[in-house]
Design a protein around this nucleic acid. Structure first.
Lengths: 109, 109
DNA sequence: ATCGCTATTCAGTGTTACTATGTACCGGTA
DNA sequence: TACCGGTACATAGTAACACTGAATAGCGAT
């Protein structure tokens, strides 16, 4: 992962994970694999887990421990009402930023 | 400024400033004012100055000290060849991220 | 019994933007 | 003269976040 991407993910990775959880519950390992499939080649495992713990502590997600057929039990996270509100706010913030950047790229102002 | 925006700016503010400098040389105070005009309501002065110093140290911009009619001399920054390369890389990184996020927003995958 | 895959955790590090404050130059005004 | 507001830059300390690297643990297959 390039250093630019690493810095750019700060603040957005959180939104990405919330967006994933908004469609279905998921656990850390699964989310990491999903991200890697989509081209986020080197997202560190530890990163996603740490993020999930932060989300839990802030009360944006609910957690359930589910036994796995292969390996230790999974911690399955799901978005709750507060998390959904926060995700909407995230999209607003993202839209604002994305609009300004598109303007900058096109107009060369 | 919301906390979300603060975190999201990490990594992108640098690109924004480089993009501004790609169209014309500018100095810190001017850039801060420009950003505030565009809705980045509370960008702290210190933030932009610190960023410009980092850009200079990394050799992405050239600097020229220009006397001002009103106040202390301005440090006018302009993008050099290395900075232009870096800006292009920034746009590639940004595009990648923006595409994934748009997919997430629309498809609700 | 060892390897590989699944699955989570955590201490330590580097980078970034913010806060708060300080310095300094200038013109206008009381 | 003294002071204030606008211009212009700098910096020490803080918070937040993603990464690195390592550890722990369960399971199936060789």
């Amino acid at each position: 992962m390039g250093k630019q991407m690493t810095e750019m993910l700060k603040g957005t990775l959180e939104g990405i994970v919330l967006a994933i959880l908004s469609s279905r519950p998921a656990y850390g390992y699964e989310i990491t694999a999903w991200l890697r499939d989509r081209g986020f080649s080197d997202i560190a495992e530890g990163t996603v887990y740490a993020l999930l713990i932060r989300l839990e502590q802030r009360g944006l997600v609910d957690v359930e421990k589910v036994p796995s057929e292969k390996g230790p039990p999974r911690k399955v996270y799901s978005l709750n009402a507060k998390g959904r509100d926060y995700l909407e706010e995230f999209w607003r913030t993202w839209s604002f930023l994305a609009e300004r950047l598109e303007q900058l790229r096109e107009r060369r102002t």
